[in-house]
Write a protein that binds this DNA or RNA. Structure first.
Lengths: 200, 200
DNA sequence: GAACAATTATGACAAATGTCATCACATATT
DNA sequence: AATATGTGATGACATTTGTCATAATTGTTC
C-alpha cells in the first residue's frame, strides 16, 4: 500500500483527487493539507511514501517545501503537481531533486500511474517540460528579481529604493537591465514575461 | 436522474469531478468539455438538466456562455463553478440569471448538493459573495476598461492610441481617470485592483 | 429643454521611467 | 595577474506617465 499525502490549496481539487486516489487498491491517502507549511510538517511527522505538492500555495510554495525536504534528506518521494508548465519552475524542481513533475492538464489516472512509477524508483517528468527546459536559463540576477517582484506590486522606483536601502537611480538601473535582458519595452511587459517563464 | 455537463479547462479537475459526480446515484455526467465554445454547443445539443461552467476558459468565458444561453432561453440550469470570489464576476453572473454560483473552495459534496438544490428550483449562491456584492459597483466606463485591458498587456499610451484610433492624450486621460476611480497611484496597481475585483 | 454622463480632444506641467556612460568595489574564475 | 560578474552609485538626457483645466459633441434622462 502506497501511503501518500496531498498538498493543494484548491479544496475542490484536493478533495476530489483524494477521493479518487483512495479508490485505487494500492494507494492510501493518509492526509490532505492546504498550504506549504502544513505540507512540510506533515511530511516530517507522517513520513508518507509519496507527497503530492502543488506549487502556488499560501505561506510556503511547493517548490520551497520540496527544497527544504530534500535538504534535510526526507525519505518521502516528492511529486510536484501544477498547472504551470513554466521552464523556470520545472528547472528549480529538478534542481531540488524532486521525483516527479506532473501537470494538472493530465488525468487522475495518469497521476496514479506517476505515483506508482515513482515508487518503483523511476522519475516522472512531464515530457513537454523536459524539452522546453533545455533552453532559456533565468538571466536575472538575485537583485533584479527582487526589484522586479516589488515593481509587480505597483511600487515606484522611489518606494523600492527606500524598501531596499538603495538609491532610486540604482533601482532604475536594475529595472532597465531587466527590461533589456527580457527583451521587452517596459516594466509591465517585463513582469509578464518573467512570470510566464517562472523567473520571479 | 439529473443529467449534467461539465465545462472546465483544467483537465484533472474536470475528470476528477466527472468521476465523483457520476458516482452519485441521482447524477449522470453526460459530457465533459474544456472550453466555452464547446460548452455552448453541447448545452444546445444535449439540453442537460444542469450545466457546470468554469469562468476562465479558452475561446469563450463561462460568463459569456451563461449570458448567451440565458438570452436564447435555454431550459438548462446553469451553475458557475469558479475559484474567483470576485464581486464583479458574481454580479455579472447574477445579472445574467444563473441558477448557482459555487466556489472551488468548497467540497465536491457541496457541489452535488448545490446541483440537487438547483434542480428543486432553488438558487445556490456562495454566501461570501452575496454580502460582498452589496457594495462596490464597477466604476469604470466601457472605454476605460478597454484601455486598461491594453495597458495590462504592457502597451504604451501611444500604441493604444493607434490601436483604438484615439489621440494619445485621450488615452492618458482615460488611464488617469481609472487610476483616480480605483484610488491607486499608477497603472500597475490599477491593473491589479481591476483584476482582483473582476472589473476588467 | 436642461442636466448629466460618456467620449474625445488639446495644452501645459511635474513626476516617473528608461537609457547610457562611467565609476568603484568585491568576489569568483581562468 | 587578468577577466568577468554582481552590486551599488551618479549624472544627463529623452520619453512616458500622470494630473488638471477646459471644451465640443452626443445620447440619455428628468
Amino acid at each position: 500500500m502506497i501511503r501518500i499525502i496531498i498538498a493543494e490549496d484548491q479544496r475542490m481539487l484536493r478533495g476530489a483527487l483524494g477521493s479518487l486516489l483512495n479508490m485505487e487498491d494500492d494507494i492510501e491517502v493518509i492526509e490532505e493539507v492546504g498550504n506549504g507549511e502544513e505540507a512540510y510538517n506533515t511530511v516530517i511527522n507522517l513520513e508518507p511514501d509519496v507527497c503530492l505538492l502543488d506549487i502556488e500555495m499560501p505561506i510556503k510554495s511547493g517548490l520551497e517545501v520540496a527544497e527544504d525536504l530534500m535538504r534535510i534528506g526526507s525519505p518521502s518521494k516528492i511529486i510536484i503537481l501544477t498547472t504551470f508548465a513554466r521552464p523556470g519552475y520545472f528547472k528549480r524542481a529538478v534542481n531540488a531533486g524532486v521525483h516527479g513533475y506532473v501537470l494538472k492538464d493530465g488525468s487522475s489516472d495518469e497521476l496514479a500511474e506517476a505515483i506508482r512509477n515513482v515508487m518503483k524508483g523511476k522519475r516522472e517528468y512531464a515530457p513537454e517540460l523536459v524539452f522546453g527546459s533545455l533552453q532559456g536559463d533565468n538571466p536575472l540576477t538575485e537583485r533584479e528579481k527582487e526589484v522586479l517582484r516589488l515593481v509587480a506590486e505597483g511600487k515606484t522606483a522611489k518606494e523600492i529604493s527606500q524598501e531596499l536601502y538603495l538609491s532610486s537611480g540604482t533601482v532604475r538601473n536594475y529595472i532597465s537591465e531587466a527590461i533589456n535582458k527580457l527583451n521587452v519595452k517596459n516594466r509591465i511587459e517585463a513582469i509578464a514575461v518573467a512570470k510566464e517563464k517562472g523567473w520571479m
